[in-house]
Simulated scan of single mutants.
Amino acid sequence: MRTSKKIALAPATMSEFDGVRFLHLDSIWVQGAMRIRKPQALELDYIKRMMAWMLWRPENEINQGHAVQLGMGAAALTRFTHKVLRMQTTVVEINPSVIAACRAWFHLPDDDKRLTVLNTDAAKWVADDANLQTVQVLNVDLYDQDAASPVLDDEAFYAGCHRVLDDGGVMTVNLFGRDASFARTARRVAQIFGSDQVWSLTPTKEGNTILVAARGVQVPDRDTLERRAANIESRFELPARKWLRMVRPLPQSIINPAS
């Protein structure tokens, strides 16, 4: 969200069902989830797919570098990069009640030498020169209580995301793939990152589509991708071979709609 507009931040609330705890922003929409007995595991399908960046990282670098989440949700990605991958992790969240809820209900640890939680505006963070090319992995999931569309979704924001990524860095963005806005957002990202550096996964049954964008990554051959996927499944118990079957380059109808 942009702080230039004075907006009311919805309070974070919680519900539980069948062993899963859900985060809400004072509405019925789910903003994140955690299986209570397995807090480090990724529960929601779209959150698992946001880890598809792992396919674009060399095996010896897969859990190295700085991982940043813009939008905390229920801190699932934060817990995973910090506790499981043991990466340097920063999370940027504008709503203080979300941070408090994650610490009270969703096993978000206190800050330490590898974890920094910032209560600030994601747009300001990506525009800060201090963060220029400091990030290897960027996860973007910025929705408010209406969950209608990303609250930051313009060219300036995605240009900021590109500038904070280091060479070889990868970004994943949660979008609604069946929404008319998906093509517009994907086109914006492709214009900034380059059409050969942007891919998407097929939508989840709920309609979430993960967009993947990289900064200067040479796409590996199929054998390398399959080896990486097998390694990810073996080490981290994530469905990486399934991701590989879902990944598609952006179609020309999105990149050049007038052609």
Rank of each mutant, 00 (worst) to 15 (best):
E155C: 03
A33T: 09
L108V: 07
V68R: 08
G169H: 06
K242D: 15
V135Q: 08
S4F: 09
A12M: 05
A148L: 14
Q64K: 15
P109R: 08
M14A: 13
T134C: 06
T202F: 05
S259C: 04
G216K: 03
A10R: 04
L23K: 10
D141S: 13
M87V: 06
P58T: 12
A183T: 10
E93N: 07
G194R: 00
Q133E: 15
W243A: 05
A183Y: 04
A183M: 01
E237N: 14
Y143K: 08
N174D: 11
A156Y: 08
C102Q: 03
E16G: 00
R222M: 14
M51D: 00
A258F: 14
N95Y: 08
I254G: 03
N63A: 14
N131H: 15
A214P: 00
D45A: 14
L55I: 08
R227N: 14
Q69R: 02
W105Y: 14
S234M: 09
D128M: 04
F182L: 12
L23T: 07
L115F: 06
G207W: 10
D112L: 05
A41Q: 13
A10H: 10
H24A: 06
S200P: 00
T134Y: 01
Q136N: 15
L85K: 00
V98D: 07
D121H: 01
Y158E: 02
A190N: 00
R86W: 00
R245C: 02
A67Q: 01
V137F: 04
A147M: 13
I36E: 10
L152D: 08
E237T: 11
G194E: 02
R21C: 06
T134W: 00
I47P: 00
K5E: 15
A101D: 01
W105E: 12
K83W: 02
R184K: 13
A159K: 11
L85P: 03
A41H: 15
L175E: 11
K113F: 08
L211H: 02
R222H: 03
G207T: 09
P39N: 12
V20H: 08
N60L: 10
A74V: 06
Q191F: 01
D146V: 08
H107A: 14
V212Q: 04
Q197V: 03
A76R: 07
A214Q: 04
E93W: 07
A229E: 07
Q136M: 09
L77S: 08
R215F: 03
M171T: 05
C102V: 04
R79W: 08
G216W: 04
C102S: 09
